Computed example of a mutant assay.
Amino acid sequence: MSGYSDDHSGHVSGSVKRGGTRRADAQRNRERILQAARDLLHEPGELKLNAVAKACGIGQGTLYRHFPTREDLLSELYRHEVEELVAAAPHLLATHEPLDALAAWFDRVAAYARIKRDVFAAVEAATWQDLSAHSLGPIGDAVELLLAAGRSAGSIRADTEARDVIVLISWLSRLDDAELDARGQRLLSILVDGLRAHRH
């Protein structure tokens, strides 16, 4: 009886381990695909799935299992960028003063703006409208989290609203790389100064 139990336990744990390994491998492949797509997105010309597969060292079949179409890949890349941007807000607040956290978050916004611009230029209008509609809420929540902390600390103007900031930073995705490099950080620093509470 005990021998049966040992064999049975070993069989189950082995199956679980193999299943877990497969899931971990699949997740690693997915992350590699997204990183390769992110790196290649800025290069001239249309993003090619076979170039993405080659860049991350996987077969095209593996890539297609994760992302059957180019638009699927680009949409997921944008959603991934939004998730990372939103997740950064509470992390930065945990390690910085509110106004400094907002400024550091804006640094990430500049990188996000490049991805947004390039993805939206490459997908169908219906797709980017859907992506934009679904990302506005989470990004607005992240902005409000940062602003609320600054208002409570007295370092950010009491009349600031998340919508104001969203409208202002949305212009970043309309700039090309040269303009972003030349003006992006300066524009964001001006915005931070504009949000700063006036000391009397």
Rank of each mutant, 00 (worst) to 15 (best):
G3T: 05
S5F: 07
G10A: 15
V16K: 14
K17A: 14
K17Y: 11
G20K: 13
G20E: 09
R23F: 08
R23T: 13
Q27W: 07
R28Q: 14
L47A: 11
K48L: 11
A53L: 07
K54V: 13
A55R: 14
C56W: 01
I58M: 08
Y64C: 06
R65A: 07
F67A: 08
T69G: 07
R70N: 15
L74D: 01
S75R: 10
E76T: 11
Y78C: 07
Y78Q: 09
R79Q: 11
R79A: 12
E81L: 01
E83S: 08
A87D: 14
A88V: 03
A89T: 14
H91L: 08
H96G: 11
E97F: 05
L102Q: 01
F106C: 10
R117A: 15
V119Y: 00
A121K: 13
A126G: 10
A126C: 13
W128V: 04
H134Y: 07
P138T: 02
E144Q: 12
L146G: 00
G154K: 03
S155P: 04
E161K: 11
E161N: 01
R163G: 03
S170P: 08
R174Y: 15
R174W: 15
L175E: 06
D176N: 15
E179W: 06
A182S: 04
G194P: 11
L195C: 04
R199E: 06
H200P: 03
